[in-house]
Design a protein around this nucleic acid. Structure first.
Length: 431
RNA sequence: UCCCCGGUAGCUCAGUUGGCAGAGCGGCCGGCUGUUAACCGGCGGGUCGGAGGUUCGAGUCCUCCCCGGGGAGCCA
């Protein structure tokens, strides 16, 4: 007897197999009973007729939703079966039969109810493909950087210094010392790239922002890369290659899941086929205004501004060279125009917002000290970071890609909370 | 922090001018030999978010509070 996963059924047509999973739903038409079994890789329909043993025939009528079970039967193709293949069931063996009804039905539920039951909601039809695509995004990132010779590294989660301003930090007590949860591993990656040349990592970031929108989490995952001897131009090229690689990888590895989510893979491929659009901040302001959004030079972009750019181009767009005032201290000034920095944000298509922020970094001690002072930051906590510019400093650049926003774009889900198993948001810490 | 919407059965919701508390789904029972969130019949199921007020009478009107959702601000 072969134990088989639902995603592999097509390779076992005609064989008797064992499927282990959970009862997703059941239907009956009198003497023909259908059990829909999910196993994490997919859902398959089992057909139970009176030819099965009497106990199995009875179970097919009365097992409650989310019973765990083992199903033995023969795989066969049938156009009436969802997915094209079904199991002619010989025997069902229950593993655990719930004593009370599963809280989440197949009909509609409200968001608050679903979020309160997130630990169970993730079993449902739409959530499983989203989380499988999330997995593919992580693998795509790792495969891309491995192919490019980047070394996987790590940054600490508990830190003593802020990357950005101090308003969005989660404070904690570190044996009596003030400490924070990391907002970004960037500063540490700048150090490791001077040791290893080209580095990346995928790690959690924590922001105590009181943002209550469909694009924000207080705990999210970022894929960050940093490379020595990489300039602004090379940085943009690297980012574009990465994003295209992720989309092509997911479309190739998770096409079935995209279709289950009714996300057209051809639309995604079309969006990344052409070179990404590239405009300066100054040009972006004009385009945003032409779409009727009120914005002044020097403003950072809100959601309406990003959406206007997104709609204007219909493909990913880099917005580069922001005024130095709206960007953090570590970005290198443009030698051609010191009022702007050598940075770029990548705006995803279809209104999914900024998915990458990156820049060339300050690489001389003098500039760094000046920019720290301009930002009104104390020098002492950044002593180690300043050290990096004292010995063998080189031009270097890097960026961070927001994993959840990328997954939201690729899957087409409206709200970022469905792109991570257990979202952490303002006013939501349970489950 | 601000603005908008909402809170009625386990879930999703309806409830007219203030006048008997409702439906669908889920659950249970029954029917149906190809169902696709199956369908058909039957049965149970209520602190109408909380407190106070107006009224002969409040799910419905008023005040305050609590909770949820959407958005803004904020946000590599």
């Amino acid at each position: 007897m072969t134990q088989v996963y639902v995603e592999d059924l097509a390779r076992h047509e005609g064989e008797e197999v064992l499927i282990q999973g959970w009862l997703y739903n059941k239907r009956s038409s009198g003497k023909v009973r259908f059990v829909l079994v999910r196993d994490g890789t997919g859902i398959v329909q089992g057909v139970v007729t009176p030819d099965a043993d009497p106990q199995t025939f009875e179970l097919a009528e009365h097992l409650p939703q989310e019973s765990s079970l083992r199903v033995w039967g023969v795989v066969r193709a049938d156009p009436r079966a969802p997915g094209g293949y079904e199991i002619l069931v010989r025997r069902i063996e229950p593993v655990h039969i719930p004593k009370e009804p599963f809280p989440i039905g197949l009909k509609e539920h409200g968001v608050g109810f679903l979020m309160d039951h997130r630990h169970l909601w993730i079993r449902m039809r739409k959530q499983v493909p989203i989380l499988r695509i999330r997995d593919a995004v992580f693998w795509a990132i790792r495969a891309f950087f491995k192919e490019r010779g980047f070394v996987a590294t790590e940054a600490p989660i508990i830190v003593g210094t802020a990357v950005e301003g101090t308003t969005t930090l989660f404070p904690l007590d570190y044996f009596g010392e003030p400490a924070y949860l990391s907002q970004s591993g960037q500063l540490y990656l700048e150090a490791t790239c001077m040791a290893l040349g080209r580095v990346y990592w995928i790690g959690p970031c924590f922001r105590a922002e009181k943002s209550k929108t469909r694009r924000h989490l207080t705990e999210f995952w970022m894929a960050e890369a940093e490379a020595a001897f990489l300039d602004h131009e090379g940085n943009l090229k690297l980012q574009e290659d990465l994003v295209r690689y992720i989309v092509e990888y997911v479309v190739s590895e998770r096409r079935r899941e995209l279709l289950e989510l009714e996300r057209d893979p051809e639309i995604l491929l079309r969006e990344v086929r052409e070179p990404f659009a590239r405009i300066t901040y100054r040009e972006a302001i004009e385009i945003i205004r032409s779409h009727g959004v009120d914005i002044a030079y020097g403003d950072d972009f809100g959601a309406p501004a990003e959406d206007a750019l997104s709609a204007h181009f219909g493909r990913p767009v880099f917005v580069e060279r922001y005024p130095k005032e709206v960007k953090p201290f570590y970005m290198k000034r443009d030698p051609q125009d010191p009022s702007v920095v050598l940075n770029a944000d990548l705006i995803a298509p279809e209104g999914y917002g900024e998915i990458i922020g990156g820049s060339q970094r300050v690489d001389t001690e003098e500039e760094l000290l000046a920019q720290l002072r301009e930002a009104g930051l104390p020098l002492e906590p950044y002593r180690w970071y300043i050290d990096l510019r004292k010995w063998g400093s080189v031009p270097h650049s890097g960026f961070g890609l927001g994993v959840e926003r990328t997954v939201a774009w690729i899957t087409g889900v409206n709200h970022i909370r469905e792109t991570i198993p257990f979202p952490r948001m303002l006013d939501r810490l349970y489950p």
